[in-house]
Amino acid sequence: MKLATWNVNSLKVRLPHVLAWLAENPVDVLCLQELKMDHPVFPLAEIEAAGYRAVWYGQKTYNGVAILTRAPLEGEAVVTGIPGFEDEQRRVIAATVNGVRVICAYVVNGEAVGSAKFEYKMAWLAALERYVAEELARHPALALLGDYNIAPEDRDVYDPEAWHEKVLCSTPERAAFQRLCALGLSDAFRLFNQEDKQYSWWDYRAMMFRRNLGLRIDHILITEALKARAAGCEIDRTPRKWERPSDHTPVVLTLSQ
């Protein structure tokens, strides 16, 4: 079983990329973030023609998340948003696939440390932590995939000194990431790759991708039950080389049966 996450930065623009990537990489589950697409105009027909089902939580111009899956969804109903947390921004969707509870999350960017948007980010992360804790009590096999907008360690940043205590790399954000892990989750990528300079996002400007000046902010956190099945996790840089790419690229987790 393969699960992947990808912030596509506009599904309308990047739909051909998603379809081409799925044709070459027929993962079982693909979590998408930043659809930037109103709910009614989601391209379901194109997704289904590619052999996938989809559930989504769209929002015009901003945000939006989706789960694409080859297998039927199971049991518990699809959940949109963080239960109990009032939020106009559409950033979370959850479903169960092949016995795995999949939560797709697009974490708030936060703009700048100390700003109102940063305070919203920290409140949002606290609500996410509460929700994930509740889900873990019901689902021993759980994966939290998405664009976290957090680089967990200095080795996840091309220039730690320049990014020191800046948004995405600040102590409060990194502490929030560690609190998620402390619930019983592991960073799947770091189970297999301990190297520096492994990134999933590169700014469009100043040839940042060509120079590999990026951040690792797209993550897959998994429970102990899935950790025992984890066979590999990698960042696929290929789509970032395509014409008009997203500034993010997919992260893919492989699970044994």
Rank of each mutant, 00 (worst) to 15 (best):
G75R: 15
E86R: 14
V41D: 15
K60E: 15
L35G: 03
M122D: 07
L35D: 05
Y120E: 02
Y131L: 02
R70Q: 12
Y120W: 10
Q89F: 05
V79M: 12
G51S: 11
T96H: 05
E111A: 12
A94F: 01
I47W: 05
Y131H: 12
L32I: 10
W124N: 06
D38V: 13
V132Y: 04
E46V: 02
L128M: 13
V41N: 15
T69G: 12
A49S: 14
V102Y: 00
R91Y: 09
G114F: 03
V65G: 09
R130D: 15
V100S: 04
R130T: 15
Y57H: 15
G81M: 06
T96K: 14
G114I: 05
Y62N: 12
Y62G: 00
E129D: 10
P40S: 03
A126F: 00
D38G: 11
S115W: 01
D38S: 13
D38H: 12
C104K: 01
M122P: 02
A112L: 00
I103C: 08
D38M: 00
I82T: 02
A123S: 11
Y62V: 13
C104S: 13
E34Y: 03
V107Q: 01
T80G: 04
K36P: 07
L73T: 03
N63C: 12
V107C: 10
V55Y: 09
K60C: 07
E111Q: 14
D38F: 00
E119I: 00
A105R: 00
Y131Q: 07
A94D: 11
A45I: 09
Y62A: 13
L32S: 09
W124T: 01
A112F: 00
V113G: 04
R101T: 03
P72V: 09
